[in-house]
Design a binder for these strands. Sequence first.
DNA 1: TAAAATTTTGGAGATACTCCAAAAAATAAG
DNA 2: CTTATTTTTTGGAGTATCTCCAAAATTTTA
Lengths: 147, 147
Amino acid sequence: MEPECGLALSARKVEYLKFIFQTGGMVRTSEIASAFNVDPSTITKTLTELAAAEYIRHVPYHGVCLTKTGEQHAEFLVKRHRILSLMLVRNGLLPKDACSEASRFESQVTKKAVDRICHFMGHPRQSACGEITHDDDCLERGRGKQS
Amino acid sequence: MEPECGLALSARKVEYLKFIFQTGGMVRTSEIASAFNVDPSTITKTLTELAAAEYIRHVPYHGVCLTKTGEQHAEFLVKRHRILSLMLVRNGLLPKDACSEASRFESQVTKKAVDRICHFMGHPRQSACGEITHDDDCLERGRGKQS
DNA sequence: TAAAATTTTGGAGATACTCCAAAAAATAAG
DNA sequence: CTTATTTTTTGGAGTATCTCCAAAATTTTA
């Protein structure tokens, strides 16, 4: 499992990064805090860590935005969520349950696995939670690229 | 999510409990320690917690065995692992990858979801990692029992 | 019964969360 | 344009898990 296996971020950080990505542009501490119902000071601390890892740029007292790397990674995070949700729906779960189950465990699923599942499902464009976009990696890896 | 949603134990404790169940009878601290490559003192601490939660009986210096509750729960844990592994195999993963992915995230999947997936897959008896057994709960819930 | 192996205890550290109170900075109101 | 309000950050502290090491306790072996 290389650095880019998709397990680098905790479940919480995955949620925050997806939220920042989906909100778009400059996102304020208070927006994240109220979206997840946690104290703003908690958000500040986590944002500092995400900034140290260069997923986001943090302008103190003004907000955060994704770096190029952060944006690419967030795209993967959103796709992972949607592919896993879709797999669960296709295996008997209700859309809302699929979504909440996936949110709980998705941080533990590698990119390699996601790419394979995505390939197996025929690179679907729509899941229970929104559109799915596909990158080259996924298209290659799904066919059996090792590692 | 009631107490019995299947999220009560950490990933690590799930691993230990499955191991104790699959080893059977009285299991020694050192067996678990070497199986997972952690210090025996770490195992002792975790066993103390599992004993406090009444999943196991701990006879100091001699080992642990499952309680009735622990055995029932371990059956669920093993089944969950196998159902999820099978779902992954049926969605394009290689058996060994399916098994390791499932081990990483299974602790975050509810019993309700497992029962639904199991029902959807037709209550299969064989997965990549071994036999699958079915309980009444699963058979009912899979048909749409709420909560 | 003494030596060796196993297990437990106690101490300490890492990671990842969390909140609260107080200080700092930005924004809005007068 | 200065004061009051709101937002954000800092610092402190606490919880939960998981980890290892060294030393003590216990069991097993020789």
